[in-house]
Computed example of a mutant assay.
Amino acid sequence: MENKASQPTEDGQESNSTTKAVAEVLANHTKKPRFLQHVGIQHVHARSSNSNCQAELAKRGNVELRALVDTLTKQLKESEEARIGQDEEHRKRDEENRKKQAEMDAKLDFLLSQLQM
Rank of each mutant, 00 (worst) to 15 (best):
E2Q: 12
E2F: 07
N3S: 10
K4N: 15
K4G: 08
A5Y: 10
P8L: 10
P8K: 07
T9F: 07
E10T: 06
G12C: 15
G12F: 15
Q13L: 13
E14D: 14
N16P: 04
S17K: 11
T19N: 10
T19D: 13
V22W: 06
A23W: 01
A23D: 02
L26K: 08
T30Q: 00
K31L: 05
K32L: 05
G40H: 04
Q42F: 00
V44C: 02
V44H: 06
H45N: 07
H45M: 07
H45L: 06
H45W: 03
A46V: 04
R47K: 14
S48C: 06
S49P: 00
N50H: 10
N52R: 07
A55P: 00
E56M: 02
E56D: 02
A58L: 14
K59I: 03
N62P: 02
V63F: 13
L65D: 08
R66F: 11
L68T: 05
L68M: 03
V69H: 14
V69K: 15
D70G: 10
T71E: 13
Q75I: 12
S79I: 06
E81I: 06
D87C: 09
D87P: 01
H90A: 10
R91Y: 03
R91Q: 07
R93Q: 11
E96P: 01
N97Q: 04
K99G: 00
K99L: 08
K100S: 05
A102N: 04
L111N: 05
L111K: 03
L112F: 04
S113P: 00
S113G: 00
S113M: 00
S113L: 01
Q114K: 08
Q116C: 03
M117N: 08
